[in-house]
Design a protein around this nucleic acid. Sequence first.
DNA 1: ACCTGAACACCGTTCAAGT
DNA 2: ACCTGAACACCGTTCAAGT
Lengths: 218, 218
Amino acid sequence: MCGMARPRKPLLSRERIVTTALALVDAEGLAALSTRRLAAELGVSGPSLYNHFTTKDGILDAVADTVIAEVDVSALATGTDWRTGLLAWARSYRAALAAHPHIVPFLAQGPGRRPAGLKMADAAFGGMVAAGWPPAQATRICAMVRYFVAGSALGSFARGFVDDPSAYDPADYPRLGQAHLLAEHQQRVDEGAFETGLLALVDGLALRHPESGPAPHR
Amino acid sequence: MCGMARPRKPLLSRERIVTTALALVDAEGLAALSTRRLAAELGVSGPSLYNHFTTKDGILDAVADTVIAEVDVSALATGTDWRTGLLAWARSYRAALAAHPHIVPFLAQGPGRRPAGLKMADAAFGGMVAAGWPPAQATRICAMVRYFVAGSALGSFARGFVDDPSAYDPADYPRLGQAHLLAEHQQRVDEGAFETGLLALVDGLALRHPESGPAPHR
DNA sequence: ACCTGAACACCGTTCAAGT
DNA sequence: ACCTGAACACCGTTCAAGT
């Protein structure tokens, strides 16, 4: 009768859909994102979404690009030392993904044609080449940073272990006696592993830089 | 009638279900694994699966443990040099996951109570501690290897870029001019990045070992 | 242009019924 | 014990109908 069918002002926009979808995925996981549930959250009926996106995957694509757009690539600009740039980029990259762990599997399928993903790849690859890395090596560096960041954001290492001592019978797993304690130190363990690994990776790479001296041990 | 209801010999077994599920996931992805589809592949009706697993997630759990069981941890045994052990473990770990990329997101949720996952964690942690690493550092090493391996198996870096030059407009992405070529060198790029990253990581770690001299530049 | 409800071919899971 | 079909509450997506 009155508020039905088409209102004078659109109820939806791509932006509102993406924002709500990201909030839903963050709060309840990828499985909770159904078109019907998302539509309900937006106060419309399910099929309405198809006026703004051709497919549910299209929505996820836009969500993924929003997340990548949060990554700060400014430190990769020409002129900065490559180690400093790489460290800052990787930390920002991880922070962005760790804030939205549930879309990481989707995100890790690569930039494809998503603008924020391509902008990041352009900045990272360009930054490494400008710092003197041969293109093939610059590509590998971008790839290994993606591996490390995506892997660390995909799921907590520490929370992978159950918070229950009886799960780790010393007869079966003699060296996992403390494993049940990992869960409660989740953040410390995961961030420590990422940070230690990142610094080790950069030191190891420094040994391979065309104009390298010895790596700094800090 | 004749072949209906319960046959004298069970039609299904946990093992047959897991094997078929893994084959289906490998061939068509996680989304193709529905209980109805899996049951059809096994020649039974959907609900039959619930006589052997309490839930679809339980099936995936068993599939994940099967994949981890393929990882060779023998090089982590006490007595081997920790670098050699770590490299061999990480390579075997990556090979196992890369053979079944579609279950990596599920796998990366950690070992939980899965026996093969726990056996691997026990061997890796124990191996690093036996090699002189303090327990906290050994934990971090296990975590960072998981990050790197899972991230690299989760999705190809190279195939993340579309095989279409027009996707990467030089005006928008000035340094991605060759990006469309990545797809065709997918395996070389991804394996090169993993191998380079792994060696860099180990060299970087060697600088931090309690009894370390300088890292070898291989 | 942008929303609606109805409809289609799917899901995971439960359950009573068969042997 | 182990399989079946029917049923329940869901899915993603299409489409004709409304304004």
